[in-house]
Simulated scan of single mutants.
Amino acid sequence: MHRFLRPGGGERALPPSGALVGSALRDELRVDAGDRVTLRLPGGRTATTTIAGFVNEPLGTFAYAALSQVAAWDPAARPRIVLVRFDPGADRAAVVRERAG
């Protein structure tokens, strides 16, 4: 289960289009929110998209996108990771324990 933490604090939602990227890429690639970037997809394909925002990542630098966005980039894509959204008030720890058990 993953939360998207803003570099300045607080959380943000996964956008319906574009990609969230790790904040380390802002300086490394000299990009900002709204800039267009090209992502390399499995199988060597590429997709050009907009940086929707940045997130703090403790390990590595990743890009995150909604499954519908990934499907638009590459209809044959089969993502290995999915985002799970909890209803307001849901007990996240209980759900994780139930699914991991």
Rank of each mutant, 00 (worst) to 15 (best):
L67C: 10
R30D: 04
V37T: 03
R85C: 09
V21G: 00
G89N: 08
P75A: 11
G60T: 07
A33V: 04
G53K: 04
A52Q: 01
A24F: 05
A66Q: 12
P15T: 05
L14N: 09
E11V: 14
I81S: 15
R92C: 12
L39E: 03
L14G: 07
A72W: 03
D35E: 09
G34M: 08
M1I: 06
G8K: 13
A19V: 13
G44Q: 11
M1F: 08
L25K: 05
P79R: 01
R3C: 08
R92Y: 07
R97M: 13
P7E: 00
L20P: 02
R3S: 13
V82E: 14
P79K: 00
A66H: 12
D74E: 15
T49Y: 02
S68Q: 15
G43Y: 05
V70H: 02
L67E: 15
P7N: 05
R85V: 09
S17P: 06
V96I: 13
E11Y: 14
P7K: 11
F4A: 06
P16L: 02
P88A: 13
L67G: 15
R30F: 09
T48F: 01
R36L: 14
P15M: 04
A66G: 11
A77R: 02
D91T: 06
L25W: 12
F62W: 13
A13T: 12
G8A: 12
T48Y: 02
T46W: 03
G60D: 01
V55R: 01
F54I: 05
R92Q: 13
T46S: 13
S17Q: 15
P42E: 11
V96R: 07
G22F: 04
V31C: 06
T48I: 03
G9N: 08
R36G: 07
D27C: 09
L41F: 09
V70A: 09
R80C: 12
P75H: 02
S23G: 05
L59Y: 13
G60S: 09
V82L: 12
I81G: 15
F4Y: 14
P75F: 03
D91C: 07
V82F: 15
G44H: 06
G9E: 00
I51H: 00
A52F: 05
A66L: 06
L67K: 07
V95M: 10
V82W: 14
P79A: 07
V96Y: 08
L83P: 14
D74G: 03
R78T: 08
P7T: 06
V37W: 03
G60M: 09
P16I: 02
S23H: 11
P15R: 00
H2L: 14
P58E: 02
A33I: 05
G44E: 11
L25E: 00
D74F: 00
R80M: 15
P75V: 08
L59T: 10
R80V: 11
